[in-house]
């Protein structure tokens, strides 16, 4: 196993000839824009960074099911109900694809899940805000999924093969997620006064948190540089953020609604979109567990795991009995 090689080598201060060779092979693969595959040797920090990023991404998909699942039983039409179920179900699927990718790095799903349930692992802080109205289904699809897609498309070319492949699959499937959200808002914006108000309110609440999904500003994002050198990330946080805000600035016009940002404008000089200062103190507070919904989100996940324990155990016991009776 590659991990063993690395641990052994850490015992000696001077890298062995084999390790230098392995590092050179790794660097060459990254340099060639090729892909690292699970059984290749990789530097331990690369493995750790990826495991953290991929599993956080997976956790976000799983926790991210909750705000939308909250509206499935109350969806205002049967067609919308079906679309919403399909979307939330996709999120479970995407979580699974990502856990699969993370597992190829040598950490089991069980361990990853344990990290989430015990609060050692993080997930996207936006899911710690409540989905209070039906219009939030629109805003989450349009803004939250939109920001996620803007983040994810470049990840399809991430240097770690299984992660890139999972992202390709996810991006293909998510193409409908953003559109359905936009169309929910479009229907509301063309509807009654109450519906229009509901749509604007949802955009007002999700605008800023969705911009923060791209992560802290570049000058406060210490890990970004290394991730870009490893070709896990291809663009900086700020760069992706300004591109996204430019897209939604145009799209919101189709809705006939507004973004809650008087400072939003395209800067001809730099060729970039400028937006208002974001409240990073709130962002950090939510990440640390102080968001309105952190406690509920975690408890719901823990409850599902706890209440499912007897089922998982029974299925495993049945499989064992079957295996034994086949041997006998």
């Amino acid at each position: 196993m590659a991990a063993t090689t690395q641990n052994d080598s850490q015992l000696s201060a001077v890298p062995s000839y084999e390790q230098e060779q392995a590092q050179a092979r790794f660097d060459a693969i990254i340099g060639d824009d090729s892909r690292i595959e699970p059984r290749d040797w990789m530097p331990e920090p690369y493995r750790k960074t990826l495991t953290r990023q991929v599993s956080q991404h997976a956790h976000s998909e799983i926790i991210g099911m909750q705000p939308e699942a909250n509206w499935i039983t109350r969806a205002p039409s049967l067609k919308r109900k079906a679309i919403l179920i399909a979307k939330v179900q996709d999120e479970a699927g995407h979580g699974l694809y990502l856990y699969s990718a993370a597992e190829t790095l040598g950490t089991s799903r069980d361990e990853l899940n344990d990290q989430l349930l015990t609060g050692r692992a993080k997930y996207s802080s936006i899911f710690n805000y409540p989905a209070r109205t039906w219009a939030d289904m629109g805003a989450i699809g349009w803004l939250v999924d939109g920001a996620a897609i803007a983040n994810q498309v470049p990840l399809c070319r991430a240097s770690y093969g299984p992660y890139g492949r999972a992202m390709v699959r996810i991006c293909k499937e998510e193409s409908f997620h953003q559109r359905q959200g936009f169309e929910i808002l479009l229907s509301l914006s063309r509807g009654t006064e109450a519906q229009k108000k509901m749509a604007q309110d949802a955009i007002n609440r999700f605008y800023e948190p969705s911009l923060m999904m791209f992560g802290p500003p570049d000058d406060q994002s210490p890990n970004s540089k290394q991730s870009m050198a490893w070709k896990i990330k291809r663009f900086s946080n700020d760069d992706l953020r300004q591109r996204f805000v430019g897209m939604i600035a145009e799209q919101v016009k189709v809705l006939g609604l507004t973004l809650p940002d008087p400072e939003l404008r395209f800067d001809e000089e730099t060729g970039k979109w400028l937006h208002k200062d974001l409240n990073w103190d709130e962002f950090m507070a939510v990440i640390k567990g102080g968001g309105p919904m952190n406690s509920q989100r975690m408890e719901r996940r823990r409850a599902a795991h706890r209440e499912g324990a007897w089922v998982r155990e029974a299925a495993a016991a049945y499989a064992n009995k079957q295996a034994q009776s086949e041997v006998a």
Binding site: L96, S100, E103, R109, A166, R169, A315, A316, Y318, Q322
Partner: peptide, 23 residues
């Protein structure tokens, strides 16, 4: 296409159907 967890082969092939052939 990817991987998944299942208690046994019969459930694995069913989970694969649900997870990897939804479309």
């Amino acid at each position: 296409a990817g991987s998944l967890h299942a208690p046994d082969a019969e459930m694995a092939v069913r989970n694969a159907r649900d997870l990897y052939t939804r479309r």
